[in-house]
Design a protein around this nucleic acid. Structure first.
Lengths: 221, 221
DNA sequence: AAGTTCCTTACAGATATCTGTAAGGAATTC
DNA sequence: GAATTCCTTACAGATATCTGTAAGGAACTT
């Protein structure tokens, strides 16, 4: 079993539950906890420099703002930096996000090793996740239906960029102009029209407003 | 101090933290826990019928779906029913929501007694909340800025109804027709135009798309 | 090299949005 | 009861959206 684990999570009350699971049931010896991404990353760096690196990182995705100034403001940023620093570290994400597309993106983009969704029976899933990751396999807690086909649309960067500008209130004409200015191609109003229309089909939206509402709700933009 | 408290929260790992705070620091004797709103409500009813009612209810707002069929699917519904059953029970909401408008609505609509936002130092805030409620005052954890004026716009039911239809992809013309059919007044396309335009000013949106994006993000629709 | 497919772009016509102006009715003030 | 204010509604003109068609270019197939 893992010997040295770092837990990063800003819900203090949740720490105890995780630590209990790890120490009592999984007999992990050294468990460190952090409330802030920046501090957590510092710990990773120090441990690495001292050649006693962490083997497993368990982190949430969202962290509330605070008076403390932060460089890393989200779990995703922490994961990205952790991967850069220590490519072989195991990473379990532990969050309330239950959107398959988002979770799939975490596996693809950051090569996370497991995803555990907060909720009932979470300690069981966390145990399963740790065991699976220790055996070099991946794990996703069971209530996430990764097989759902209705949300696997790949939004490429270009689409996301358009959608964010639309959500920001820009017209398609303005977006085209902005893209031209920023040398982003393609950049004709027509192409942007076409791209967005294609998204209507994929997400069964009738117009831009509904499309943005749908994507905002499932957290893709 | 309170003697009999019910905690309703579907994040199992969080239970331990809350229970520790209540039992060790606040010396609460009887603490019961539930993962489901329905079961929690049953407990309230039984305790009430047996004339040993709970004095304090601490509940989350959002509960993940599960295979168990549910009547009460959210903390808000549980709170509403609890208030009906036992008007004098103290209620502390413990959730990750940090939107002042939403929290204000909880105090107004359901007469909750305190609101604690999940996050760093939450156990301290929870203690403060319990103490305050015990003294018959209200409490809101400090990182929530209830004084912010930029989110206190009162969206009346009519506005919300329009916004939901827009987010559903209906055109304003269709909304007007639907309102006429359902005998909802006012119902002219023009009035709907005007209402939405007024919301642009309030939320600093340039068009419908941005307005819906803003309101969806802060969770008002 | 010709054919196919896919993407980008232009353009055009039908709808929808947004922003005014203006008129009428209800409630309130004076 | 006249004046004021607020809300609803109609209408009109300028933009923006949405949906086609069509042309040209790049990449790939045959």
């Amino acid at each position: 079993m893992f010997k040295k684990v770092l837990i990063v999570e800003d819900f203090q009350a949740t720490h105890k539950g995780i630590v209990d699971t790890l120490s009592e049931k999984l007999k992990v010896k050294e468990i460190q906890e952090e409330l802030y991404c920046d501090k957590a990353f510092t710990r990773l760096k120090v441990a690495n420099a001292n050649q006693v690196p962490f083997e497993l990182l368990i982190t949430d995705l969202s962290f509330k703002e605070s008076h403390v100034e932060r460089k890393l403001t989200s779990g995703e940023e922490l994961i990205r930096e952790a991967r850069k620093l220590q490519p072989d570290i195991k990473i379990i994400v532990y969050s309330q996000v239950d959107n398959p597309a988002k979770i799939r993106a975490l596996f693809q983009e950051y090569k996370i090793n497991a995803y555990v969704c907060k909720g009932r029976d979470e300690s069981l899933w966390l145990m399963n996740a740790v065991n699976a990751v220790h055996k070099n396999t991946t794990y996703v807690s069971p209530q996430i239906n990764m097989a759902t086909t209705d949300t696997i649309f790949e939004l490429d960067d270009f689409d996301v960029q358009i959608l964010k500008e639309l959500a920001d209130g820009l017209t398609k004409r303005e977006i085209a102009a902005k893209f031209k200015q920023n040398k982003i191609t393609p950049n004709s109003e027509s192409t942007i029209d076409k791209r967005v229309s294609k998204l209507y089909d994929e997400f069964e939206a009738k117009n831009t407003t509904q499309l943005i509402a749908i994507l905002t709700k499932i957290g893709l933009i």
